[in-house]
């Protein structure tokens, strides 16, 4: 392609789909890999994230699960998934017997506006979830 042709084709190149990006199906597949095929019920989990994010490079995220964290009734793990980053998985946190509360807070990257899903695995084998919609104005530079 001559430089002139390339220049003319530039707008079309911008319309090409991004190289790597997770989808709703991939997010659900990653979630099922975490739950062992069980579909989590909504509730008991509360995910806190700003609904409007100005900078996707560091987005504060916290997940709190309603659980007494006793010997028998406790949260085994929390996992967070995303819909449209290159990879659907964000973080998995497994709790041992010394954990005080089922809470996690961290900073994450968001490639674009999307839905996030937090899933909690309970010791009794049940799974609970919460989802959040996030609008991102400046995307994380995960794809340049």
């Amino acid at each position: 392609m001559t430089p002139r042709r390339l220049l003319l084709a530039a707008p079309a190149l911008l319309l090409l789909p991004p190289a790597a990006r997770a989808s709703q199906e991939e997010m659900e597949a990653a979630m099922r890999a975490f739950t062992g095929g069980v579909t989590p019920r909504p509730g008991r989990v509360s995910m806190e994230i700003s609904p409007l994010v100005e900078n996707g490079n560091t987005v504060p995220l916290s997940v709190l699960v309603d659980s007494p964290m006793s010997e028998t009734d406790r949260v085994r793990a929390i996992a967070v998934f995303n819909q449209r980053n290159p990879q659907p998985h964000v973080i998995t946190m497994r709790f041992g017997p010394r954990a005080g509360r089922a809470v996690l807070a961290t900073h994450i990257r968001l490639a674009t506006s999307q839905t996030l899903l937090a899933v909690a695995a309970m010791a009794d084998g049940s799974y609970w979830s919460d989802s959040a919609q996030v609008v991102v104005t400046l995307a994380a530079c995960v794809e340049g």
Partner: peptide
Amino acid sequence: MEADFSPAIA
């Protein structure tokens, strides 16, 4: 507790 990170961690 132990945590597994993905590239989505800032």
